[in-house]
Amino acid sequence: MHSLLTRFKRSSEAYLTAVILLLVVVFGVLTPDFLTLGNWFDLVESYSVTAILAIGLFVVLVTGGIDISFAATASVAQYLAAYAAIRLNMPAPVVLLIGAVTGTLLGCLNAVLIDRLRATAIIITISTMSVYFALLMYFTSGKSIYGLPGWWSDSMVLFEMTTGPDQSVRLTLPIVVMIVVAVGTAFIMNRTSLGRQLYAMGGNPEAARRVGVSLSTMQWFAYGYLGLLAGIAGLLQAHRVGESVPNAMIGGELNVVAAAVLGGASLLGGIGSVSGVVLGILLLAILRNGLNLMGVSPYFFQIVIGTILLASTGITGLSLRRRRVAEA
């Protein structure tokens, strides 16, 4: 019983689930609109892009690295794809490939620099972020690309169900992509040798190296994978808004970091899970939606995020210290 309780306390997924359930009850009682299925699906869709980015960042965080440049990467990939589609009239598969490949390549460039220059990841990715974004703004002069082709921007509903008068549940493309990405990443991280090597590297790089893990390969994979997911997120974001705005995705980087950390990832690497990250995103989404439905100013939301981040990291940090003191 005791061990079960401590294990429950230690798992951030359990924590998050409890907090989410509590919030659902509170918001459900306070606002009648909250507990409708339609609202939930809209909620998940509006956070799908952030979730995909957070899952990609999570993989990098597991190795003990960090990446600030993913939003810039996503913007570049999105813009290049939109350019290929509109100005060069390329077919859909080529356009999608351009988006995904651009993202992966920019991610791999981060990996090369971090691995070869032996520099801190945060410094390299701050630099590449400023380079990627500034070059994008320079070449596009900040101009948006409007009128994406129909195959790209038309809303894709894969499943629809009416749940009542004026109410329907719609399973849209972003939700499906998000689920596929989450399940795929969870599979890689938990069921493949590659995933376990990533955890090993984050836990103790030197130990991992000595048992034969190639740290370079791990970095290539982690940053390349985040780049790929950033490319996909860029394509999806354009799908949702129907245009490509060069600076639309910039500025939200730190919120994605917050979401990943909230879900149990550590900046020191080695811990966390995809389900935790998804729950972290869900927590943020529910809070925003609930506060919104209650009529709280959206400006207030940032204060709430900050408080939750401090509280959750604080609890983790303090319990770590207490455990260490208890063991000593």
Binding site: L254, V257, A258, Y299, F300, F301, Q302, I303, V304, I305, G306, T307, L309, L310, T313
Partner: peptide
């Protein structure tokens, strides 16, 4: 990051 969000918010 937390204090930044709170102050800025």
């Amino acid at each position: 990051l937390g204090t930044m969000s709170i102050i800025n918010g």
